[in-house]
Simulated assay, not measured.
Amino acid sequence: MNQIFLISWNVRGLNKQEKKAAVRRIISKSGARICFLQETKLCSVDIRSIRQINGYASNMKWISSPSAGSAGGLISPWDPMVFDCNDSIVNDSYICLIGNLNYKDFSSSCVLVNVYASNGPSERKVVFNNLQEDLSQFSKPIIMGGDFNITQSPLEKLGSHPKKGEMQIFSDFIDSLCLIDLPLKGGTYTWSNFREKPSMSRLDRFLISPEILGIWPDLIQSALHKNISDHNPIVLSMVTQDWGPKPFRWFDVWTKDKDLMASIGSICSVNKGRGICSML
């Protein structure tokens, strides 16, 4: 079973009530407690807007970056029970939330980054450089998601010529921050122009620090079905699998521990009356 805790989505505008309602349905159905929304096209965001687009708005906190007219705009709502934010960086192209992530009995300080990179190559390069510089001041693992407006390899593009120089800049940016791009489940591309001769690309993704995967090794990223946007929502979730009782392993090196027999005796004494499997 997949347990979704983060969703990223280029919604292509939230000015219409039916659009907000559709976004709310998707977020509520996913159960995501942290959201990265891009291209909101909202000049201002208040609690009423958050309630209209998020199914858990009663206790949600959020930070937004306003659009420039009808272009851009970012919103990052989160459940304070899942993420405790103590600092932030906000500009036109990204929102960085610095704090502590608490999920599934694990806790980790980290930076959550909501990205909406420019479609122009030179502007996009500036975004990556600025983001790299801002993140360099924090020695914390990163969960980054959003619309990067560029693919990482020619295999992520269909219907148009790949731009190898621009892809290399993106790959270098990912490597500079030591981030991992998990395989995408549920599809190959995350954007389509919906034309007779289609052009499709994987523009949206999550990028994750190895330390996060060390804590939550079952993380996957998946594409949901397109709904009200030409971009797929991308979700970060954990796969929980019940494989039955866990096997017990014996390591010979334990016999070299002078306290081994005392530990075994203590365990047997405390668990007196229980079966050997329970004690192991």
Rank of each mutant, 00 (worst) to 15 (best):
A262K: 04
I174D: 07
Y189Q: 02
I150E: 15
K164H: 13
S76W: 05
K140C: 11
G72E: 00
D84W: 08
S8G: 08
D204R: 04
G13D: 01
S76C: 08
S269Q: 09
N119V: 13
V270K: 15
S266F: 15
A22G: 08
G31Y: 07
N149F: 01
L179K: 03
L158A: 10
G31H: 06
L112Y: 02
Q38E: 01
K19A: 08
S237Q: 15
R195A: 09
N102I: 10
G165T: 11
I50G: 01
E166I: 05
Q17P: 02
Y94T: 02
A71R: 14
C43G: 12
I75Q: 03
L101S: 03
W62F: 13
N102Y: 03
F148N: 02
A117F: 04
F83I: 03
I212D: 07
L177Y: 06
D87H: 14
P247F: 06
M81P: 02
S118A: 07
N193K: 01
K197N: 15
S229P: 05
N271F: 11
S28L: 12
S44I: 07
V127I: 09
P183W: 02
M1K: 14
V45N: 00
F148C: 01
N102E: 05
I212E: 03
L158F: 15
K41I: 06
G186K: 07
S222M: 12
L158T: 07
A68L: 13
S201T: 10
F173N: 02
D259T: 13
G146E: 01
S192A: 12
F148W: 06
I142P: 03
G55V: 05
G120P: 00
D242R: 13
S49P: 00
R33K: 13
P80L: 06
K258S: 15
Y56A: 10
S28C: 08
G244W: 12
K246V: 14
I63K: 12
S263T: 13
M1P: 12
V270N: 14
Q52F: 06
L184I: 07
K164E: 14
H225P: 09
P183S: 00
R202P: 12
N15D: 01
F248V: 01
Q132E: 11
S108K: 09
L260S: 12
V126N: 07
N91H: 04
L177V: 05
W250I: 12
S107D: 02
D259W: 03
I50W: 00
T188K: 15
I95W: 07
I53V: 13
V235F: 05
K140L: 15
R24C: 07
I98K: 08
L158H: 13
L179R: 09
Q132V: 04
R51A: 10
E196C: 10
V127N: 10
Y56T: 05
I27C: 06
N86Y: 10
K104R: 06
N15W: 00
L14S: 12
N149S: 04
M167Q: 11
S222T: 14
H225D: 15
S107L: 00
I95R: 02
